[in-house]
């Protein structure tokens, strides 16, 4: 493990030390945080490795040409519908949408589609929407979806225009 790796795990090592000390000195705050950490880690293990394997398979199996045609710069309005449908199947949260979006972008999807996908993945994930409808009401869910989706699409188009004018390039090293 070189110095750079050690730096990446710096916070984690610090956290491990903090938790150990908390248990030794019976510090409640540290123990409570550790409980949360354990629970959230277990939740992540339930799907994260599978998601990354799926992303890997997507990278090797799906042709760039297919993505470019349906989600690329010259794709039509249908591409927004694909992006929103795809976002509905996202599991977990935004943190899962980022690596998926990154893979799509590298395969030739346009920036507006990427941002539509991320935005929609935040608010239209199917299991979450069902939860919302049952606790807060279907009317609320429908109002929220129908007001936010157009805003997400419009802002994605504007963000793409802005980033293109600034010559935005996506980083390649970490996630490749």
């Amino acid at each position: 493990m070189n110095l750079n790796n050690l730096r990446k795990y710096g916070l984690f090592l610090f956290f491990v030390g903090f938790v150990l000390l908390s248990f030794i000195f019976d510090y409640n705050v540290g123990e409570g945080i550790y409980d949360n950490f354990l629970q959230f880690t277990l939740t992540m293990i339930k799907f994260l490795p599978a998601v990354f394997v799926l992303i890997g398979l997507f990278d090797t199996w799906v042709d760039r040409e297919v993505i470019e045609r349906h989600l690329g710069n010259d794709s039509n309005y249908l591409s927004f519908i694909w992006a929103i449908l795809l976002s509905g199947t996202t599991v977990g949260g935004l943190y899962v949408a980022f690596p998926v979006a990154h893979s799509l972008l590298k395969k030739g999807a346009s920036l507006r589609i990427i941002f539509t996908y991320i935005g929609a993945a935040a608010i239209c994930r199917i299991p979450m929407t069902l939860f919302e409808a049952s606790y807060v009401g279907i009317k609320f869910t429908l109002i929220r979806l129908f007001t936010s989706i157009p805003l997400i699409i419009i802002s994605s188009i504007l963000l793409e225009k802005y980033l293109k004018s600034r010559g935005y390039q996506i980083s390649d090293d970490l996630a490749s």
């Binding site: 950490f37 490795p49 990354f52 992303i55 890997g56 398979l57 990278d59």
Partner: peptide
């Protein structure tokens, strides 16, 4: 594909760990 996925997972592990810590 599977190898690539696992490689990406390992590369991104520290970032996800950091997020889990912040969230907890």
């Amino acid at each position: 594909g599977v190898k690539l996925g696992i490689k990406k997972l390992i590369k991104n592990l520290p970032v996800f760990l950091n997020m889990i810590i912040l969230v907890s």
